[in-house]
């Protein structure tokens, strides 16, 4: 089980950051997206190859209106 934005997600073994973003409907070229895994920033260039271990907390973030 991997937690993506707080929700338990059934990621297959060896799921990458890019795979998990695809589940959210996010293209890996999408602008204005950033990802942290267990509190570590994962640079965009590493998304296709970076596998996410079971139990990890993935935060996939984007721009929202804010002061």
């Amino acid at each position: 089980m991997i937690f993506v934005n707080g929700a338990p997600t059934q990621g297959h073994d060896g799921a990458t950051v890019a795979d998990l973003l695809a589940v959210l409907g996010v293209d890996r070229d999408a602008r204005g997206v950033a990802v942290a895994v267990d509190g570590e920033v994962i640079p965009r260039r590493e998304w296709p190859d970076r596998t996410v271990p079971g139990g990890a907390r993935v935060e996939a973030l984007t721009a929202m209106q804010g002061g």
């Binding site: 934005n5 959210l24 935060e59 973030l61 984007t62 929202m64």
Partner: peptide, 10 residues
Amino acid sequence: VTIALRRIDP
């Protein structure tokens, strides 16, 4: 202009 970062909302 300022923006914030929040979880992606599909």
